[in-house]
Computed example of a mutant assay.
Amino acid sequence: MANGEILGWVSRRFCMLGLVDGSSAMSLPKFIIGMIFALAIVVAWSYADGASLGTALVRVVVCAVIIQVGYFLLIYVMVARSAPTSADKAREAERSLNADKATEGEKFSARRSIH
């Protein structure tokens, strides 16, 4: 199966958020399954603790928020630390060329405008 091939309505590339430099550290399906298991453990702990339904719900919500924030930070760090792609390098080179041309054009136009 190709990396960008469509699986139902979700592309495989979307599901493989953890792919950075060819290593699959954490994919979206793995994250969701892990989160469900973690929340199930929190529910079991709350039940064993004899907590009320409201307390158990608060514990599950707090746990889910902590997991989501941690996953977001993990993905952010992985993307921030990844090496620039060839498209990024080409885009940066094009920007520097356009900046040089604009600066050069401004120099000539300033000289011409002096009367």
Rank of each mutant, 00 (worst) to 15 (best):
R59E: 08
A56T: 11
R81V: 05
L28W: 02
A51Y: 08
E106N: 11
A2Y: 06
K89G: 01
E106S: 13
G22P: 00
A2R: 15
S52M: 08
N3G: 12
I67F: 00
V65R: 00
V60N: 12
Y71K: 09
R59I: 11
I67E: 13
I67N: 06
A56H: 01
R81H: 03
G70R: 10
S46D: 01
P84E: 09
V43M: 15
Y47N: 13
S27L: 11
G18H: 03
D49V: 06
S46T: 02
G105I: 13
V65D: 13
W45D: 05
G105W: 03
S82V: 13
Y71A: 10
G105S: 14
V61T: 15
K89Y: 03
A87H: 11
K89T: 09
A87D: 14
L17A: 13
A99Q: 11
T103W: 15
P29H: 02
V43D: 07
W9L: 12
A44V: 03
P29K: 06
K30E: 06
A87P: 01
L97C: 01
I6A: 11
L17S: 04
R59P: 06
S23L: 05
V65L: 06
V77M: 11
A38K: 14
R111S: 14
F14K: 05
L97K: 07
R95F: 09
K30S: 04
L57T: 12
G4N: 08
L57E: 00
R59G: 06
S86Y: 09
R12H: 01
E106C: 03
M16R: 02
Y76C: 10
I6S: 14
T85R: 09
M16D: 10
G4V: 07
P29W: 04
I6E: 11
S113E: 07
M35E: 10
R12Y: 07
A25H: 14
M26W: 00
S52H: 05
K30Q: 13
A51W: 01
M78A: 07
E94P: 08
D21S: 11
V60Y: 05
I66C: 12
D21T: 05
A40G: 13
L19I: 08
L28S: 05
I66G: 04
I75E: 06
V43S: 09
Q68K: 13
E94D: 13
D100T: 15
L74A: 11
Y71L: 07
